[in-house]
Design a protein around this nucleic acid. Structure first.
Length: 486
RNA sequence: GCUCCCAUCGUCUAGAGGCCUAGGACAACACCCUUUCACGGUGUAGACGGGGAUUCGAAUUCCCCUGGGAGUACCA
């Protein structure tokens, strides 16, 4: 049975990079009928926050990445928050110490700092000296007041399970990866405050939770060697590993706040649809076998093969995400869209519109939307008795003689028009024809009306706009334009 | 500094020795459609980082260089 997991640390909102890792794990699980587990890595209490945990839950769910086991839904291998597992780690650390694969270290931060400075001075890679490795019982007794950290004995584990100092494993996406373990210093597995370090907690948890495959970012490659050694020292079978390339910002640096949104929730707040986001993120490193890029998570899962995932980094560019988002908006059914748009219409008084009018407004304004928040600036002219006319529109369109003539006649003619879309269509046809005979292009005729009523030269279908506004507002706006420019 | 990873159009990618005068998508540009904007349609431009080696033949294999990224904590 394949079991994979996503193990975010709640020190921030769910990052798109983490979301992609989660997605690939989810896809792998779905494709192979496996289980997808959520574990919260909150061993560093200082940096963890409940708010972030909620954000992680909500974002993952919004993306459609539902987990089979996790802190909220439980499961057979819980608890699923590391902070609730603190009593588990010491016993495994003790086992390692007893077997000689780990030892107590009394070094002070100052001593460690000195070691690091020395190796920096000698332009050498810092490797812990191992000075506490062979402390005599006598010395330990002398120091019994101090609380030691526990370090993993790298060379002992390496020698116990491998012929040379080289350690290698076959990565699911990158192939064979190697590392000379003599370059890995004896690292801390239990801090002197009694909590486990990341590398130790992950191994213990993944082992206990029977995780079979670990798919994560390539920033973990160096950790993997340490972790494999711990698995071996613990007498456990190491899972298979797959390391994904990183997601970079357009300037090829790490994606950070400086580049805009980084959290999934920020994207949704800006008006990105989670379906589009997840689809876009899947395309970073993976490509569909049929060339059809717009796909649901389930469709992607069917086509997903971890071995086909690209091992290089990829850059997060908004262009394609924007296009994709617009495609997903087009596919939304009208009721869903109406609701999705509401938060972005908060500044307008929607109660002034009937449901039918609101529906129609959305129907005629949805086409150019790239992100949902675009709607905010696309609809002001649907509200209020008056309208704000843009200066250029005033000068270039409304202040022409042609426009004034059109508007004067429109004001007269439309007095007894029925302001339904159908009727308007017919009337406007006639209206345009009348001016066409006088050498005024249909385009110009409509521009004048649009400009006076909406204050803009571009926007939604004008016939529908007029119908939604109704005769009173339309003629009111036309009249004030005529009065103002008279 | 040391260690590791990566390298095809601006971007995401297809490509696992001949099917490649390198394909697709986004973006760009042009044209068409059109009572605006947009959508849509049709086209154009655009890449194998450099150098060696292997081979009858290399984007595909190997080596070196260069470039980019990551790790180097009692953070995760």
């Amino acid at each position: 049975m394949y079991r994979v997991r996503i193990a975010p640390s709640p020190s921030g909102n769910l990052h798109v990079g983490t979301a992609r890792t989660a997605l690939f794990n989810y896809l792998f699980a779905k494709k192979n009928n496996g289980q997808f587990i959520l574990r919260i890595e909150d061993t560093d209490l200082e940096r963890s926050d409940k708010e972030y945990i909620k954000n992680i839950f909500d974002s993952l769910k919004a993306l459609g990445l539902n987990w089979d086991e996790g802190p909220d839904v439980g499961g057979d291998y819980g608890p699923y928050s590391q902070s609730e597992r603190f009593d588990i780690y010491p016993e495994f650390a003790k086992k390692l110490v007893e077997a000689g694969f780990a030892y107590e270290c009394f070094c002070t931060p100052e001593e460690l700092e000195a070691e690091k400075e020395l190796s920096a001075k000698n332009k050498q890679a810092y490797v812990y000296s191992g000075k506490c490795k062979n402390l005599s019982d006598e010395e330990k007794l002398k120091r019994q007041e101090e609380v030691p950290a526990i370090r993993f004995n790298v060379s002992k584990a390496q020698k116990a399970f491998h012929d040379s100092s080289e350690l290698s494993f076959n990565d699911l996406v990158k192939g064979v990866l190697k590392q000379d373990t003599s370059l890995i210093g004896d690292f801390v597995i239990m801090k002197s405050n009694g909590t486990p370090t990341y590398n130790f907690a992950v191994v213990v948890d993944d082992m206990l939770m029977k995780i079979s495959h670990i798919i994560r970012g390539e920033d973990h490659i160096s950790n993997t060697f340490k972790q494999i050694l711990i698995y071996e020292a613990l007498g456990a079978q190491a899972p298979k590993f797959g390391h994904l390339g990183m997601i970079l910002a357009p300037d090829r640096s790490k994606l950070s706040k400086r580049h805009g949104a980084t959290a999934v929730s920020e994207f949704t707040e800006k008006g990105y649809l989670t379906e589009a986001l997840v689809n876009f993120i899947a395309l970073l490193g993976w490509s569909p076998s049929d060339g059809q890029e717009i796909k649901s998570v389930n469709e992607i899962a069917e086509d997903f093969r971890i071995h086909d995932v690209s091992s290089s980094n990829s850059i997060f560019e908004y262009d394609k995400l924007n296009w994709m988002n617009s495609q997903y908006i087009k596919k939304l059914d009208i009721e869903t869209l109406k609701n999705a748009l509401r938060p972005f219409l908060a500044q307008y008084d929607l109660s002034g519109l009937t449901d039918a009018q609101y529906t129609r407004m959305v129907e005629i304004t949805r086409e150019p939307l790239t992100i949902l928040s675009d709607i905010t600036n696309d609809v002001p002219y649907f509200f209020g008795d008056t309208v704000k006319v843009e200066p250029e529109v005033q000068a270039e369109v409304l202040d022409t003689e042609t426009s004034r003539k059109v508007l004067r006649e429109f004001y007269n003619d439309a007095q007894n028009w029925e302001f339904s879309e159908e009727a308007l269509h017919e009337k406007l046809d006639e209206f345009r024809a009348k001016f066409k005979e006088q050498g005024i292009k249909p385009k110009e005729t409509m521009w004048a009306i649009r400009a006076a009523v909406t204050g803009r030269t571009r926007g939604a279908d004008i016939t529908a706009v007029l119908a939604i506004l109704g005769r009173e507002k339309v003629l009111g706006r036309v009249n004030s334009e005529l009065v103002n420019s008279a």
